[in-house]
Computed example of a mutant assay.
Amino acid sequence: MKKLFSAFCAAFALLAMHGAQAGGISDSGANAYWGGDSHGQGDVIGGSMYDIGGATIARVGSVLTVTINTAFAGHAGADSWAGPNGIGYGDVFLSQAWNPFGTDAHHTGDNAANGTKWNYGFSLDNRWSNTGGTFKLYQLNGSTNAANIKNSESFMTCTLGTQCLYRNGQATAVKTTSSTVNYTGLTGSWTVTKDQKLTFTINASSTALVNFSSFAMHWGETCQNDVIEGLVRVVPTPGSLPLLALGLGALCMLRRRRHG
């Protein structure tokens, strides 16, 4: 019986591993993405509050979760002189392929005009909330990013110069009024936590996102003072495997409690 129980637990571990696909993108070190138009400031413009450390993308069945580690979590509304309501959280952009401009490690010439064309966007209902809220999933069908997105210039009212620096030309928000942008009918939720994380979760069962073998991602604040981009490789998984893994996990936990 003990051998059978051990086999169940081993199966649970295997299924849990296959049921949840996740990968990370780092925004620090020699290969960190900077993006174009940093105006000589490098990775981060405006100090450590805007720093992005990394991100993870996970898919369990049809549920997609994007988690971003950033010191800006909880600071929406900062620098109110720079734009209406201050600096907020940008939208999340996704695509299956990542095609940044330039061959240098930091892609210092890459922007929305010459880089990856984004296929989906999470459009936040309130990008200045420091607790979270909801977002809508849009499919971006225009032939260029210009047809589908707004850059940081759309959110900044200060004049770009020595007293006002921000990373212009970067994808910042879904242009929901564009005829090339279609609402999928799906809504997700996002949270801001004290451990400096933004977490976005959505059930994307009726979209191509559930079949992506890889995810390219872009995110930054509305000023894009720091930007994270990169690629995570995953494999499609049926939703039944995570459910079976959860069931086996419950059996393992129950058995251990009885043994205790």
Rank of each mutant, 00 (worst) to 15 (best):
G115L: 00
I202L: 08
S214D: 01
C164R: 10
D195F: 08
N151H: 13
M156G: 02
Q139Y: 11
V181N: 12
I202M: 01
S123V: 00
T199Y: 00
T134F: 10
T116N: 01
A112T: 04
N211W: 13
S123P: 02
T172D: 08
Q170N: 07
R127G: 04
T176H: 05
Q139W: 13
G169P: 06
T131A: 14
Y166D: 01
S214Y: 12
R167W: 06
G109E: 07
N211V: 01
N168G: 01
S154P: 07
K136G: 09
T131I: 13
N141W: 07
N211C: 05
K194M: 10
G188I: 01
C164W: 04
A208I: 08
S189A: 09
F200Q: 07
I149H: 08
G109M: 06
E153Y: 12
N111A: 12
T172A: 12
L198P: 00
I202R: 03
N148M: 11
A113T: 13
V174R: 09
T207S: 06
S129Y: 08
G109K: 06
A204G: 03
G132H: 08
G161D: 10
W128Y: 15
K150N: 15
C158M: 09
G132D: 04
N145T: 03
N141A: 12
T177N: 14
S205E: 03
W128S: 11
L137G: 08
S129C: 02
N145Y: 05
F212Y: 15
Y166K: 03
C158V: 05
A113K: 10
V174G: 11
T191W: 05
E153G: 15
W190T: 08
S178F: 04
S214E: 03
I202T: 01
G109T: 10
T201Q: 14
K136N: 14
K117I: 13
T187P: 03
Q139V: 15
S154G: 05
A173Y: 01
F155G: 06
N148F: 10
F155L: 04
L209F: 06
T134N: 15
